[in-house]
Simulated assay, not measured.
Amino acid sequence: MERDLKARTKRFALDIIDLVEKLPNTISSRAIANQLIRSGTSVPANYRAATRGRSNKEFIAKLGVVIEEADESEFWLELIQDKGWLEVNSLKTEASELVAIFVSIVKKMKNK
């Protein structure tokens, strides 16, 4: 499962990068692109850090960051779609699924 999530979150970041490179070159889209790049690439980076956590408490805390960043990415994707710049349904779905997966993991860890 860990290896699958590492690959899945990395693919998410790569897809975010590809999407951002297709956005129009306007002041507003560049601002959103910068935010989306930060949050989208933060998801796999923080997940990797979480897997190296020294305790369950640290693991849960780092997954909290992953959840926040995936949720923030979903928000930026919604803005891109609402502006009509690009079709982002599949990435929005992936961001939402990643949030749900990591929330589920955190809940299970807290109930141990």
Rank of each mutant, 00 (worst) to 15 (best):
K62H: 05
L36H: 09
L23H: 00
E72I: 06
V43S: 11
K57P: 00
L86R: 13
E74I: 01
S39R: 04
E94P: 00
I60A: 11
S73T: 06
E68W: 00
I37A: 03
D71M: 03
F12D: 02
W76C: 13
A33V: 07
R54E: 13
E94Y: 02
V99Y: 02
A7R: 12
E21Y: 07
R48C: 08
A31W: 07
I17K: 01
K10Y: 02
S90H: 06
F12M: 10
R38H: 13
T51H: 07
R8C: 05
A100L: 13
L86A: 08
A33L: 09
I101E: 04
E58R: 06
A13V: 06
S28F: 15
L19N: 01
L91Y: 06
Y47F: 12
T26Y: 08
P44K: 08
L14K: 12
G40P: 02
L63Q: 04
F59K: 08
A45K: 11
I17H: 01
A33N: 05
V66N: 06
K62Y: 04
A45T: 13
A33S: 15
K92S: 07
E72Y: 05
D71F: 08
L79S: 04
I60K: 06
R52A: 13
F12T: 03
K10R: 15
T41L: 05
R48W: 02
A100C: 06
K83L: 07
V20R: 02
S29W: 03
E69F: 06
Q35Y: 12
F75L: 14
E21W: 00
